[in-house]
Design a protein around this nucleic acid. Structure first.
Lengths: 209, 209
DNA sequence: ACCTGAACACCGTTCAAGT
DNA sequence: ACCTGAACACCGTTCAAGT
């Protein structure tokens, strides 16, 4: 009874309402698409033609549209992935560095994310329904990550306590989102440095616990 | 010797290098185009089709392209016009109100300009050469306008002196440029109010002169 | 089930033909 | 001189035909 399709691990008959595991090639296509789109968006901006992405990923346009009903959905999926990557960077940083350094490094990481996403602001302003999930997703993933770093640094007495993670995230985001040229980037860098200095200003200098 | 073309006021022969006055209908078309484009951009965003603008203005697409070699050039022209209008609002405000009130009202006017221009940030980020003139134009027109209001209010002792017009303009602009929803607008409003309070903080309370 | 790509609709831009 | 709009190139999206 040899077949050349991979043997399904679960029931695939009866059309039950249960979600089924995607076919291996479909999953691989989705990963490649997301990966390729991220690269193309980074180098050519989020307005890059979908056809170009499909070609570079080695799939038909139809396949791209099977996974993402429109270009906005693809853009949103790429951004969600990068938000997750940024959030996930917090834990290793916290494990490998002292609290304040971990916090600084993570903010640097976040700045790197925001600074390269030139199309993010435009996308969010477009009002397209596909982007509606992005601010909540950012809040759910990035705020807890930053709050953890802030709390740890505050408990260690390296920064003051009572700093709201949401405010800090927004402030840094706004400052870098409007950067247009090198002087602007310089100015944003100075203002973020000032914010970070501000965090240390009221610090106890000694762990509370 | 009756002709039905309007009599030219200047020499129109010899193909001299001197700039000539535009034909009356051409000037009227340009005004209508600019006016219509501003309305369409305000209601439908800067991505509105050029065809729609040409139709609403009652001219052929070719005429639109005669005046503006591409859509970016039209968008830039509309923004330049609105920057000028905002700059020109300073003088009447200064004449009609006490210094601090004039300053507050003008900032409100500027916020109104920035807040409605959802496409501005995206346009500036696009890197299109047509938009390169906008930041310099903004600086040349808006900074002197704001600086004048700041100086007058500082001389009257209503705000502190030494506040840089460029910094204030950028700060207010950045804050409102990233507004996406009603809570965001609330937050931006609070932050601008805080900035304005900050201006009054170190005031002498009495005119210097 | 999933993939492909020709076909369609729409938008920016050009240019030959008009006045 | 200036205006017009058909025509072209290009891009997002769909869907009939394949495996």
């Amino acid at each position: 009874m040899s077949t050349d399709v991979p043997a399904p691990l679960e029931n695939d008959e009866h059309g039950s309402a249960k979600a089924r595991a995607p076919r291996a090639d479909a999953q691989r296509n989705l990963d490649t698409l997301l990966q390729t789109a991220a690269e193309v968006f980074a180098s050519s901006g989020v307005d890059a033609p979908v056809r170009e992405i499909a070609e570079k990923a080695g799939v038909g346009i139809g396949t791209l549209y099977r996974h993402f009903p429109n270009r906005a959905e693809l853009v949103a999926a790429v951004f969600r992935r990068e938000i997750d990557a940024c959030a996930n960077a917090a834990e290793p940083l916290a494990a490998a560095h002292p609290p304040f350094e971990a916090l600084s490094l993570w903010i640097e990481r976040y700045v790197g994310f925001v600074a390269t996403k030139k199309g993010l602001a435009a996308a969010l302003h477009s009002g397209d329904a596909a982007y509606e999930s992005l601010p909540p997703h950012r809040n759910q993933r990035l705020i807890p990550a930053l709050r953890g770093l802030l709390d740890t640094a505050a408990s260690a007495g390296e920064i003051r306590s009572g700093v709201d993670a949401y405010d800090l995230l927004n402030a840094v985001g706004s400052l870098y989102m409007s950067v247009r040229d090198e002087p602007g980037a310089e100015s944003a860098r100075r203002m973020v440095a000032l914010l970070i200095d501000g965090l240390r200003y009221g610090a106890t200098g000694r762990p509370e616990a």
